[in-house]
């Protein structure tokens, strides 16, 4: 069986199973722990603030952009770029079973390059900044690679560089599958759990009428 066929068949199935299993597992790990009932009388609305905080934390904290410009600028470009490339590229839409034409190929190319550049800057910052170096482990560098590879192989595939279409398509699919399969088991799981984290933080502060 060719690599491409393996990637599209058993490879994808394996990745999908691991992704679903792992994500359910991580969410269950969190939710199973539960929360005690708060016996203090509320002074504000927990629910509303939980919801608000899920969105308000997309904005940078005052003063922090200037203190950590690479993390902020790089972080925004990387996250938005990734989103644009994943759901803005026509063939991705087709694979995802969504209609629509997608964004112009040139734009996607540019965004991909920009996203990879942002990731490179973030990696450099991680390696150079003492705090980030101290708090980083193999998992952090590994997660970087998991996200970078699909971008890189996708770019090569679209532009037919280095290898012919078929092996590149296979590598691209495989890199996406590896990322999906490992997402729940790495810090990439924040793609889901950030909603819980922000929600809990918002609810805890909201009940007190405090800031979050």
């Amino acid at each position: 069986m060719s690599l491409l066929l393996w990637a599209k068949g058993p490879g994808f199935a394996l990745a999908a199973v691991l992704f679903l299993l792992g994500t359910a597992m991580r969410l269950a790990e969190i939710l199973r722990l539960g929360r005690g009932t708060d016996l203090a009388r509320p002074r504000g609305a927990a629910g509303g603030q939980a919801l608000r905080t899920v969105f308000s934390r997309f904005l940078p904290a005052p003063g922090l952009f200037a203190r950590s410009p690479v993390v902020h600028a790089g972080g925004y470009v990387f996250h938005i770029g990734l989103l644009v490339v994943v759901i803005g590229y026509g063939p991705h839409l087709a694979v995802l079973g969504i209609g629509g034409r997608g964004l112009p190929a040139g734009l996607i190319d540019g965004v991909t390059l920009l996203t990879m550049a942002a990731m490179t800057a973030l990696l450099a910052a991680r390696l150079r900044d003492p705090v980030k170096r101290l708090i980083s482990g193999p998992g952090d560098y590994g997660a970087w690679g998991l996200v970078f590879l699909p971008l890189a192989t996708g770019f090569l595939l679209v532009n037919r560089v280095l290898l012919p279409f078929e092996p590149l398509l296979a590598l691209h699919l495989l890199s996406v599958e590896v990322m999906l399969a490992l997402l729940p088991f790495t810090k990439l799981v924040h793609a889901f759990t950030f909603v819980l984290a922000r929600g809990y933080a918002g609810a805890i502060a909201g009940r007190k009428g405090a800031h979050s």
Binding site: A16, V17, L18, L20, L21, G22, T23, A24, M25, R26, L27, A28, E29, I30, R32, P184
Partner: peptide, 11 residues
């Protein structure tokens, strides 16, 4: 099945 197994493991 994958979701159920994962949820059970995690719980």
């Amino acid at each position: 099945a994958a979701v159920a197994a994962g949820a059970a493991l995690g719980a």
